[in-house]
């Protein structure tokens, strides 16, 4: 079981550095620490994620993302002692979960939640996130609104592809998540791109700024 692999016992006292500055009472165990983080910050994390993933995940999806994040936090609670800011860690993991859901779907995201082998501190690299340039916010907002007009499955395909770091997500993987044939994924992807191309042109967001 996971508990056997932990570096510390769940009720082991934590380092002072792991304490949340917002708390009045000092939590004594990982369990208490996690409880405090969730109690104090879950709602704020939700508020942060909703605008970040608007158009890709709706508020009820974000609730599920926060719940999955709580599970990941609990799985890796042994690492709290090494954290400078547990609550920033909470936000980072929640953001990763949201990306995982959009890239791989709920099924895979939940598998990652319970099967992650290396510590999350190592699996997450802030530098990796910095690779993509910050988009023009207004342009990004308009593109998201246009993507929102697509049918649900086409929208999910477009979001998954956009968040993939290595080209489009394989049609077979999306087919499994969306419960449709791989051929249908390819057709939906093509239709979505054709529709977006038309909408972008209509809204003056073309003409081909990337050639």
């Amino acid at each position: 079981m996971m508990l056997a692999a932990l570096e510390i016992e769940p009720n082991q006292p934590l380092a002072d550095a792991a304490q949340s500055p917002a708390s009045d009472a000092v939590p004594a165990t990982a369990e208490q620490q996690l409880e405090q983080i969730i109690r104090e910050h879950a709602s704020a994390v939700r508020d942060i994620l909703i605008p970040r993933y608007r158009g890709g995940l709706d508020p009820s999806d974000i609730d599920d993302v926060v719940a999955v994040t709580a599970n990941r936090l609990w799985t890796h609670r042994s690492e709290f002692a090494r954290l400078r800011s547990p609550r920033a860690w909470f936000v980072r993991i929640a953001d990763n979960v949201a990306r995982d859901v959009l890239r791989f779907g709920w099924q895979k995201a939940r598998q990652l939640e319970i099967s992650a082998e290396k510590p999350y501190l190592e699996s997450f690299s802030p530098a990796e996130e910095q690779e993509s340039p910050e988009p023009d916010p207004e342009r990004a907002r308009m593109v998201r609104e246009l993507v929102e007009q697509l049918p649900e499955k086409q929208r999910k395909i477009i979001w998954a592809d956009a968040l993939s770091r290595s080209g489009n997500i394989p049609a077979e993987d999306l087919a499994r998540e969306l419960d449709i044939p791989a051929g249908t994924v390819r057709v939906y992807r093509k239709r979505a791109l054709d529709r977006l191309r038309k909408l972008l042109t209509e809204h003056g967001l073309s003409p081909d700024p990337l050639t």
Binding site: Y53, R99, V147, D161
Partner: peptide, 9 residues
């Protein structure tokens, strides 16, 4: 889409 859909860092 890769440049505009993902949220900023």
């Amino acid at each position: 889409l890769r440049e505009t859909l993902p949220p900023p860092p």
